[in-house]
Design a protein around this nucleic acid. Structure first.
Length: 239
DNA sequence: TTCCAGACTA
DNA sequence: TAGTCCGGAA
């Protein structure tokens, strides 16, 4: 739901000051020096791989291997997989224990081995080795939820299907009160943001807020002293 | 809501 | 050493 939906009129509610807050975040992010900027899923596939569906598969895999604040762990796992040729067939030919050693120490590596194998088999059987091009089909894959689906649509297919809400987006949206009421889950946050955030910003909001969350708006002991939004943020502390 | 696999830190 | 930490599944 929400997928492809267009707002026909102005939203009934928008947070106060959100444009100034967003401008400040853009400024803080202008260095593009957060882990996500070098090691995010957009950077973990082989752009020379052909056909294109191999690149799309690599994007999905790097999302499935994502490992909170430790983008370099994901990047390392992707590098080891790519060194062996990272395709649907090569993964299906890799036994689970080998795959485990290749992706270790990615968080939740045991379950990820299982999901990657299951999902890869489905891609081969039902999608001709490609990844599906809709959120509904993507979230039906084992180990793929809404956050990965929306990012995969954006990165692999170049289509904005919704806002990818991970823990950073969820936390920061609530700190800035970018949701009309406090939200308890990332899905709730996604729906609340899509209510008012102009669609042309949906694509960039994830990378912007993830990097901000990695460097400044940390989950514990946020660096409010260093934040340009400290005077505009309801959650600012330490002044 | 809890579990997962560990790293990080108060 | 205890508490907190993805996002997805059950």
């Amino acid at each position: 739901e929400g997928e492809g939906a267009e707002r026909l009129q102005a939203p009934s509610w928008q947070p106060q000051d959100w444009r100034r807050q967003l401008d400040n975040i853009r400024t803080m992010r202008s260095g593009k020096d957060a882990p996500v900027d070098q090691l995010g899923a957009e950077h973990c596939f082989d752009p020379s791989a052909s056909p294109k569906q191999v690149q799309r598969y690599q994007v999905l895999l790097s999302l499935m291997l994502s490992s909170q604040t430790k983008d370099q762990v994901t990047a390392g796992a992707m590098q080891r997989l790519r060194a062996r040729g990272l395709t649907v067939d090569s993964i299906l030919q890799t036994d689970d224990s080998t795959l485990g050693t290749l992706i270790y120490p990615v968080g939740f590596w045991r379950s990820k081995v299982k999901y990657i194998k299951q999902t890869t088999a489905i891609l081969q059987q039902r999608y001709g080795g490609d990844i599906p091009a809709s959120v509904a089909e993507l979230v039906a894959l084992p180990g793929v939820g809404p956050k990965m689906a929306h990012l995969a649509m954006a990165v692999a297919w170049g289509t904005v299907s919704g806002i990818a809400v991970d823990t950073h987006v969820h936390r920061i949206a609530n700190r800035l009160r970018w949701t009309k009421e406090a939200t308890r889950s990332p899905e709730e946050t996604r729906r609340a943001l899509e209510e008012w955030l102009p669609r042309e910003l949906w694509r960039e909001i994830n990378g912007l807020l993830v990097g901000f969350g990695q460097q400044t708006c940390l989950p514990v002991r946020p660096r409010c002293q260093a934040c340009l939004n400290r005077a505009l943020c309801p959650a600012a502390r330490g002044l």
